[in-house]
Design a protein around this nucleic acid. Structure first.
Lengths: 168, 168
DNA sequence: CCCCAGTAGTTGAAGTCTCAATATTTCTAG
DNA sequence: CTAGAAATATTGAGACTTCAACTACTGGGG
């Protein structure tokens, strides 16, 4: 009988938590912008598009179903459709019908796309190193990986029932 | 005389570094999307716009010069101009001329903007907690803050000369 | 005082992203 | 076997971002 049931005061962030959160916003904003600019300049595409090529380049036969590619990159299928349309226009990706499912489409990395990747990869890796790995201790790198994995895991569309408390 | 001078092989990311970098991409992609969606739904604006209101609410007289606001939020002045135009249309921010510099503009948080913030803040804090703080140990939270600060610091437009090696 | 390089901020066009709606195909219960 | 539900992928409109060009103003040397 201490607090009214409906108008609970929310648990605000502490000063320390606010600092951390602000640092997160600043760091990610600056890094994302930095890489987008670097890649736009050196490869003619934003970071996400580059990443799509990277993922395709590592897939069997350099191809992936649209839905799979979307899941691997954590983006919506709609966003991916638009992105692939643009990459196709550049000749870096090609679409192919899926023989076993008439609804399906493969996104296939073309030779031109692969060459573009080869040309721009060194500059991109250098940028990532310079902005991230060169500045962090091995412990911090390890911590960052673990932290981001936890965050990603918590936001992933889960398997059926996994977030139903009465099924835990 | 071991390696040709022009075609040095770049220092690719190790497997471990690749894992970390991929986790970073996944985590930030999912978290940014999650918060954008949450705020679009509950407050009618994307996360960046909400953050602009937050920063203004903490500034003296709830106002900041455009350039200052851009620096506080790590975005370009152009992006800010567009964003403030939209926030102004919503009645959450108002522009005011700067008396001491006729080029200058203040962005001022309106009462309506403040109320909107009050209404949506609890939900937003809850989302940040649930996605981030609730899942990380105190040590991880601390580490994340330090890591992001380092990254941000490295990408910040520096003071004149600060990045000239011969001035160090 | 005047020139002009630098600063503050805005603008429009082109590119990208979101959201809801759509067409098509596959799966499944009955 | 078939009707309905679910999955695959795309589309278009509107919102947001980027980039370069632009206006207006300031401040410091000649």
């Amino acid at each position: 009988m201490k607090t009214p049931p409906a108008a609970e005061e929310p648990r605000w962030l502490t000063e320390e938590e606010q600092r951390i959160w602000l640092s997160y916003i600043h760091g990610t904003t600056l890094l994302d912008d930095h890489l987008d600019r670097q890649l736009q300049r050196d490869a003619g595409m934003p970071h996400l598009y580059y990443h799509l090529l990277v993922v395709l380049s590592g897939a069997p036969y350099r191809r992936l179903r649209m839905t799979e590619l979307a899941m691997h990159t954590k983006i919506t299928r709609s966003r991916l459709s638009h992105a692939v349309a643009r990459l196709e226009k550049n000749g870096w990706v090609r679409r192919e019908d899926c023989p076993s499912d008439k609804r399906g489409q493969f996104a296939v990395l073309t030779d031109g796309g692969f060459e573009t990747l080869e040309k721009s990869a060194p500059g991109h890796v250098a940028a990532v190193r310079q902005a991230l790995f060169d500045r962090l201790s091995p412990e911090q790198q390890k911590a960052l990986g673990e932290i981001m994995e936890i965050i990603a895991e918590g936001l992933q569309p889960k398997e059926a029932g996994a977030d139903l408390p009465w099924l835990r």
